[in-house]
């Protein structure tokens, strides 16, 4: 899987739960895999000053973000003995309860799959120029900052 062309990470709107099931199904023919680890980011209906977040509108510096995703993925492959690694992130509006990030790692054994997945999620949150506008039910908004 290494040294391939950068994969497209961004997709418009929420990540459908069916995509996760399909990704798992797609790996059933790879019988050297013994463990998958999956992280799913879901939009939370935070309540801020009495107003509830209805959705997050994601935007990105796309060229830089795709490059950052590629570098993070390459760095994960150099550190962890993964069989596969897939990352998907939403752009545009994702409602509370819907999925905005899907990270999927596979390896022969569980520890590598879990550690690689954690590494990828932390790196994505810290290094990828994605911006989130939290849209409230009264149509006001504020800009999200990762904790």
């Amino acid at each position: 899987m290494k040294n391939k062309e950068p994969k497209k990470v961004f997709m418009a709107g929420p990540i459908p739960p069916e995509k996760i099931a399909k990704s798992i199904a797609n790996h059933q023919s790879k019988t050297n895999i013994g463990a998958h680890s999956i992280f799913l980011g879901q939009v939370r209906a935070d309540e801020i000053d009495g107003k509830k977040v209805n959705a997050i509108e994601y935007s990105a510096y796309e060229e830089m973000a795709e490059k950052a995703f590629h570098e993070i993925r390459e760095s994960a492959f150099s550190q962890f003995d993964m069989t596969c690694c897939h990352i998907y992130h939403s752009l545009g509006t994702v409602k509370a309860g819907e999925l905005c990030l899907f990270v999927f790692t596979s390896s022969a054994h569980r520890k590598v799959a879990i550690e690689a997945c954690n590494y990828l999620v932390e790196e994505i949150k810290a290094k990828v120029p994605v911006f989130g506008k939290e849209l409230f039910e009264d149509e006001s908004h504020q800009w999200k900052v990762n904790q």
Binding site: C100, K125, P129, V130, F131, W143, V145, N146
Partner: peptide, 10 residues
């Protein structure tokens, strides 16, 4: 040159 506010991915 890009001016980037705090990142909020995921």
């Amino acid at each position: 040159v890009a001016f980037l506010p705090p990142f909020a991915g995921g």
